[in-house]
């Protein structure tokens, strides 16, 4: 009986917070837009019965998504922005995690704290702070002009560059923490053994350190890629009108156009795209756990 409850709790959680909302969204995506409140039909009513209700649902909105090139371009550009951001985050995050894992024991807790510290401030405020840094009159441009490196302020805010900076900044901890935990668990004598057997420092790194932190790298990449793909705040605040990302399209569809059915269809497709990396991620986590046994 106790066992049943233990299993029932997470499943009830999943049902209430994921499956039910998903089916509501799915239902809206199959409806038609209408001037009403809420702005779509059909609405379910007990008088007409369930068959009449189901008859009114169709895939019109999904067909529409394939007809307007805006949507697939937005999906594609989201995937490429999220992908490139992931690579950038890995490039910055790996050395950071490596340095932390190699730092003297007594420093590590502090370094870990510094990585986590930004989470104590609101995400929105941090993004606004970046607007202040990256704008034409912002801190970065002022600094570069003061050093004499540039004479004209650079246009960074409202370009894709700002989006990359924003995503890398925001998701860096998600990359650093799993890689750090993999490196921290690694037995230092393995590197010595590799050197003893003829490896240089660099080849010991490629042949031993990197393979042994593989699971951390994969986990970190997914933890950055998955949320970055649907990211909305960063592209809309830092990216300006030039950056096309599906999260932004979704928001506009929902709030500017008030076209809930199309917005829902966009969300359903986004979820389907995300299912692939999420499943891969789960499998990687399972492999990691088995290897650790």
């Amino acid at each position: 009986m106790r066992k049943f409850f233990l299993i029932a709790v997470p499943y009830a959680w999943l049902l209430a917070l994921f499956l039910i909302p998903f089916f509501i969204v799915l239902k809206i995506s199959l409806s038609d837009v209408a001037l009403a409140r809420p702005p779509y039909v059909p609405q379910f009513s007990w008088d007409d019965g369930i068959m009449a209700f189901l008859r009114d649902l169709d895939f019109e909105n999904f067909v529409f998504l394939t007809e307007d090139s805006l949507y697939w371009k937005a999906y594609l550009s989201s995937v490429s922005i999220a992908g490139l951001s992931t690579i950038l985050t890995l490039t910055i995050g790996y050395p950071l995690a490596y340095g932390m894992a190699r730092a003297p024991e007594e420093w590590r807790a502090t370094l870990m704290m510094l990585i986590i510290l930004p989470f104590w401030t609101s995400f929105l405020i941090r993004v606004y702070a970046w607007m202040g840094i990256l704008s034409q009159e912002g801190l970065l441009n002022q600094f570069l002009m003061w050093t004499g490196l540039i004479s004209e302020p650079l246009m960074i805010l409202n370009t894709p560059t700002a989006v990359y900076i924003g995503i890398v900044y925001t998701y860096l901890p998600f990359m650093v923490l799993p890689i750090y935990s993999a490196l921290d668990r690694m037995d230092g004598s393995l590197i010595e053994a590799a050197e003893d057997l003829g490896c240089s420092r660099l080849s010991a790194f490629w042949l031993v350190t990197v393979p042994l932190s593989r699971n951390g790298i994969i986990a970190g990449c997914f933890l950055v890629f998955i949320p970055a793909l649907g990211e909305f705040v960063i592209p809309s605040l830092l990216g300006g009108s030039g950056t096309l990302m599906i999260g932004k399209v979704l928001w506009e569809e929902f709030f500017s156009n008030r076209d809930w059915p199309v917005a829902s269809a966009v969300a359903v497709i986004l979820l389907l795209i995300l299912v692939i990396p999420i499943v891969l991620f789960q499998r990687n986590q399972q492999d990691a756990e088995e290897a650790a046994k």
């Binding site: 004598s189 010595e192 053994a193 050197e195 003893d196």
Partner: peptide
Amino acid sequence: PPNKRATNMMFQSYALFPHLTVWDNIAFG
């Protein structure tokens, strides 16, 4: 440096590479 010495060490903890097979561990050097 250690990688240029004609010595090899058998570590107290063995320090076998967990991601390599027995064969590849022996072939490593």
